[in-house]
């Protein structure tokens, strides 16, 4: 795995030495014009992806899904079913790629690991008092350590939006670096901004850089638990951020839109955004993920349609 942290010698390291330096840096990033950003995202949404390109995109999208269940009602049984589906999404067609990961709460990591054992599927765990993040740092770190100890390959943390919106950027930064440390060398860290709560695109760009400076392996839009989750526009903005971050530091960071992506058509639009913003370097599941649950079945039905020429139906894919 490539290094994902800035070395102490990197010039950008200076900007994280104090709250005021961090603020100056983040507020010095180029502004975002909302209408222009949304216009660009919408315009890429009109790309027409057909035939072979569509088949490729559907398989790619399936391979990028973090198949997710984050309910109070989750049980080991439910998680085992999810794991089985992640490994073989379409039991009738073994050429269907596995999903990238299953994404569960920390106490379900053990069950999830068992369910995907022997496959390529990773186990991702939300942590840090997901989804609100309103807990003491000790508690959050304990949450992370539990998940890592149970074998989580990836940790999806939430940032402290309250601190971010109050302008206490260094607090957010320190928390991310602490979580990153708790992940150790075995787990990749996804940093969730809850873009719907950050409310402005300027904030999303700042949060993206903040997360990347603090060592995020992935930046992720949302928890899926608020009104506005992943959108083409906020994902495009985060793609621009990882592109620019790599240009400045040489470090590549992944992107994960999560929540609200339900159809193949939507997913393909996101892949077009990736393709035309950051290009093929990000077009695999090490660098781009979809946080989703119902999306997978729609992708599978579309896949069946392409293979057979007939429209499929919900009875021909498995319920979660």
């Amino acid at each position: 795995m490539p290094s994902t942290a800035l070395t102490a010698a990197h010039p950008l390291k200076d900007v994280t030495t104090s709250d005021s330096a961090l603020r100056r840096f983040l507020h010095g990033l180029p502004g975002v014009d909302a209408v222009g950003l949304e216009g660009r995202a919408a315009s890429l949404g009109t790309r027409s992806i057909k035939t072979t390109a569509k088949a490729y995109a559907i398989d790619l999208a399936i391979s990028m899904v973090d198949l997710t269940t984050l309910e109070g009602a989750d049980t080991p049984g439910k998680v085992r079913a999810l794991g089985a589906k992640a490994v073989h999404p379409d039991p009738t067609d073994r050429t269907t790629p596995a999903t990238a990961a299953v994404c569960v709460y920390p106490d379900m990591v053990t069950a999830a690991k068992e369910a995907v054992a022997g496959s390529t599927v990773k186990v991702a765990s939300v942590a840090t008092a997901f989804p609100a993040g309103r807990a003491a740092l000790d508690v959050k770190l304990a949450d992370v350590r539990d998940a890592v100890a149970a074998g989580a390959d990836e940790i999806d943390m939430v940032i402290d939006r309250g601190a971010f919106l109050a302008g206490r950027y260094l607090k957010v930064y320190d928390e991310i670096t602490a979580v990153k440390e708790a992940c150790g060398t075995s787990a990749r860290l996804k940093v969730i901004f809850e873009t719907g709560e950050l409310s402005t695109y300027d904030n999303i760009r700042r949060a993206s850089w903040l997360g990347m400076l603090a060592g995020a392996d992935f930046i992720k839009t949302s928890t899926g638990k608020v009104a506005v989750n992943a959108t083409p526009a906020n994902t495009l903005l985060m793609l621009e951020a990882v592109r620019d971050f790599r240009a400045q530091t040489g470090i590549q960071v992944g992107v994960k839109p999560a929540g609200g992506i339900r159809t193949s058509k939507d997913a393909i639009k996101f892949l077009v955004l990736v393709n035309e913003t950051v290009g093929e370097d990000w077009l695999d599941n090490h660098w781009f993920r979809f946080g989703a649950s119902s999306l997978l079945n729609d992708l599978l039905m579309q896949r069946q349609k392409l293979a057979t020429g007939r429209y499929s139906g919900p009875d021909y894919v498995t319920v979660d």
Partner: peptide, 16 residues
């Protein structure tokens, strides 16, 4: 990396 990389780049098929 454990997941197999997809075989080709994302080339858009003709959509006339």
């Amino acid at each position: 990396m454990t997941v197999e990389k997809m075989p080709s780049v994302f080339a858009y098929a003709p959509a006339p």
